Simulated assay, not measured.
Amino acid sequence: MTRATGVGSMPGTTDADHAEATRVVLGELPELPHVPEVPGRGVTAAMTGRGLAVVEGLGADLQPAGWRLTDASGIDHRRARSLLAQDLDTVEELAQDHQGAFKTQVCGPWTLAATVERPRGDKVLADHGARRELAQALAEGTRTHLADLGRRLPGVDRWIVQVDEPALASVVAGQVPTASGFGRHRSVDLPEASAHLEWLVAAIADAGGEAWVHSCAPRTPWSLVAGTGAHGLSADLDMLGPADLDTFAEALESGRTAALGVVPSTEPATEPSEARTTERVQRWLDMLGLDPDGVGEHLVVTPTCGLAGASASWAGRAVRLSATVARNL
């Protein structure tokens, strides 16, 4: 059966909004709920801060220019970790009786390297050793994170970890700005780009989880991502080029997952209909020469990206529409 899930983020600015987002996710996406993120609460709840909250063995602090690695955790890093634990307390309370699959999200190693500064300044991306250390610390921290989730929700028999890599395309294309803003960091060699993702994918598998890689950015190197051993590929359907079709077809044919973002993440001028959205997915499958019945649960329907920028009403509608399209398929 085709399922639906969310990408991760939901609208809101308070802890009460996070609790409400958790209720919406559990109520509307019972087949594959996810741990909601509410980045509107500030930098400690946003993707980079949340990623650093998972990282193990490295300190960080919030500077005027953004997050920076430090010898010891600063107050904002400690707040990010405390907020993550608080959010997981909420999920544990509201999802205690959940049985089946559940999804969580972590910021990927290359997006962290492109958004976090090293101690001496400029991005971690500029330092081969620093980006290696950060990727390995993220992999180790994700193991611990999965173990914590498993203790909190013992009824979950399948943990999916979505690795968010919106910056991966810019990293491999040499498009990440330097600290001055006048230059660009050198592109990362594809073998190294793959290796850092492979460490995280392997850590997730070793901890009993299933790794999906998500990006809603254009020109994401999906063939590279597929080669890391990731079990799922998650993308905005509008961002997939002709060259990506074979990669996604091979993933589905080999029993891996393709999560397709087909529901707008912000309210459109004209509300999409269930029938047209369903037909769009069916046409895409026809292009691949695949049948919805044949791909079954390996096909997942999602919004195009996170819903943090949506209104609360549209976020609920987008989640429900995703679930309806999955049932139609």
Rank of each mutant, 00 (worst) to 15 (best):
A167T: 04
G255N: 11
R68P: 01
P221Y: 05
G261N: 06
L290P: 11
A326P: 04
R143Q: 13
A95R: 00
R132M: 14
V262N: 09
T22W: 01
P36I: 01
M1N: 11
D97G: 06
H196V: 15
G129Q: 15
L112H: 06
S313N: 07
A202D: 15
L69F: 08
L62G: 02
G42E: 06
A202P: 03
V116Q: 03
L29M: 05
A308P: 09
R320D: 09
D97Y: 09
L58C: 01
L190V: 12
A46S: 03
A315V: 08
D148C: 00
S273E: 13
D246H: 15
V188E: 00
V161W: 03
S265F: 10
L329G: 04
H231T: 15
V106Y: 05
Q105T: 12
G6T: 10
Q86L: 11
R327N: 13
R81E: 07
R158L: 11
A16F: 00
T14A: 09
S322L: 06
T304Y: 00
I204V: 13
E56R: 14
H128T: 15
P221D: 10
R131M: 11
G241M: 01
G49R: 04
D293Y: 15
D286K: 13
S180I: 08
A147P: 03
E92Q: 15
L260Y: 02
E140T: 13
A95P: 01
G229S: 08
V176T: 05
H145K: 02
D189M: 12
A139G: 10
V295I: 14
V25R: 04
H34Y: 12
D286I: 00
P177D: 08
T277E: 08
T44W: 11
A60P: 07
L88W: 01
T90M: 09
